[in-house]
Amino acid sequence: MAYPDALLSRGERVVVHKHPSWKVLIAPAVWFVVIIAAAFTGAALMRRWEDHVIGWWITAAVAVVLLVLLVLVPFLRWRTEHFVITNHHIFFRTGILNRTEHRIPLIHVQNMQTDVTFLGRLLGYGTLIVESAADQPLTFRNVASLPTVQHTLNQLIMDDRDRYRGGGPGPAPAGPIPATPPLPPAHG
């Protein structure tokens, strides 16, 4: 079962499921080309040596170690980092061997902040900082299509709060209702 399908509550559906922006894969792609080119160049230069076979093995070993550290590990980090918004929660999971996961109910989101650099504006990514009632602010870096994600998250938060107040679609959930001040009457 794909992440986070096993974690969803009844009636909960995934609205946004993202990995970090593709821009985090630029450096590993460049490293891949550089390492392969350097390894082949080194192997070609070693053909003139008497014991070139040992040099080839050393070159291959160094190239494999660098490929794992500079290409494979960043790719796996990108692939295993999930930013998911459902109609009830925000999920964030990261980690290759050890995993860290956060699950924030939308009703507990108190503030959102975005940080978009100039390059982020050009390439369409940014940082989303979410403050909740119980946790320290969580920072989600390299979120692709950040304005769309923020708009979707704002709408889901409002829908979730309306649902808890009993004014949204579907029945109000059982259990305590979070305290919210009453809205003043509209005068027109």
Rank of each mutant, 00 (worst) to 15 (best):
L146M: 09
E101P: 01
G126A: 01
N142P: 07
I96P: 00
F92K: 08
P169D: 10
G167E: 11
L106R: 08
G170I: 13
M112P: 03
S145G: 07
L97T: 12
N111Q: 10
A144S: 07
V130A: 08
L97I: 14
R165N: 08
I90D: 02
M158S: 13
E131D: 04
N142L: 12
V116L: 09
R163T: 07
M112R: 12
P171D: 13
R93H: 02
T100V: 14
N111L: 09
Y125L: 10
L123H: 05
V149R: 04
Q110L: 15
E101D: 10
L128E: 07
T94C: 10
A133D: 03
I104F: 13
L128W: 07
A144N: 00
Q155R: 11
G95I: 13
F140P: 02
L156K: 04
P105E: 08
L128K: 02
Q155K: 07
S132M: 12
F140N: 00
I129F: 07
T94Q: 13
G167Y: 04
T139E: 06
L146N: 03
G168M: 10
T152M: 11
T117N: 04
P137Q: 14
P169Y: 12
F92T: 05
G170R: 02
T139W: 07
R121G: 14
A134S: 14
V149W: 03
D162V: 00
L97R: 10
P147M: 06
N154Q: 09
